[in-house]
């Protein structure tokens, strides 16, 4: 008999954005019309990939890619990765990507007429420590226009990818900045129905993380799905 890791609890209603979110135009032809099939969790869902620093070396400073400083407002982002029971998720990879200070991605698909920065690519990677803490240094990404509707602009944001300990915990999200006037106009941010859940995507200014004469600090915590109390059993 083997005892698997416990399954994950269901997500709480209204705290995740529905894929059918008409205000975000690209969802129109990309959301399934049928409801998702609820399946029992098995080892396929309760275990997951482990991306190790051996194969994915940390890149905790996005501002010094070439040895020359990237343009823009240098910032430090730190926080914790925990589960819904507030238990730290240690040694887990956090992949990071973002636009430069001018609001331009170093990506062939980005045609926004804003300058590229030869000293900024926009990819980072860190691992949480044994208590779930992570930290990286970057520049504050700029806002940029997009074609969703007339005069549409994405608020400043940083993209993240996390794995946790089971495939059902996989998380792709975006972190926003406090006080951004574009947030109440952004259909991607607004797609999460529950206001409290939505607002948890906004980092908070963190004077403790701020380094004197160097960089402002922001705090952003990730919460991954929690597991049931009882493990599943396979005979």
């Amino acid at each position: 008999m083997t005892v698997d890791a416990a399954g994950f609890r269901p997500l709480q209603p209204r705290t995740q954005p529905p894929n059918d979110s008409p205000e975000y135009g690209s969802t129109r032809l990309r959301h399934p019309a049928r409801p998702a099939l609820r399946i029992p969790q098995s080892v396929t869902e309760t275990t997951g990939p482990v991306l190790s620093p051996k194969h994915f070396p940390p890149m905790p400073d996005l501002t010094m890619l070439t040895g020359q400083a990237a343009m823009g407002e240098r910032i430090i982002v730190r926080g914790r990765v925990v589960d819904e029971d507030n238990r730290p998720v240690p040694s887990t990879i956090i992949e990071i990507w973002q636009a430069n200070a001018a609001g331009r991605y170093d990506h062939p698909g980005d045609t926004h007429d804003a300058p590229l920065d030869p000293n900024f690519h926009g990819e980072g990677r860190v691992f949480s420590d044994e208590d779930g803490w992570y930290q990286f240094t970057t520049i504050k990404p700029g806002a940029y226009p997009w074609g969703n509707h007339h005069n549409a602009w994405r608020p400043n944001h940083i993209h993240y990818s996390l794995f946790g300990t089971g495939f059902a915990q996989r998380l792709i999200t975006q972190m926003y900045f406090p006080g951004d006037p574009l947030l109440p106009l952004d259909p991607i941010f607004l797609a999460t129905p529950d206001a409290a859940a939505r607002n948890r995507l906004i980092a908070s200014f963190d004077i403790e993380a701020t380094q004197p004469a160097w960089a402002l600090g922001y705090r952003f915590d990730f919460v991954l799905r929690g597991r049931n109390a009882t493990p599943m059993e396979n005979t």
Partner: peptide, 22 residues
């Protein structure tokens, strides 16, 4: 079962520029 103390972070789209981590 006790209610969870925290709520899982909301997902957001991976967007068109995810190839930076491809």
């Amino acid at each position: 079962m006790a209610a969870p103390r925290l709520t899982a972070t909301a997902s957001q789209t991976i967007g068109p520029f995810w190839h930076l981590i491809e």
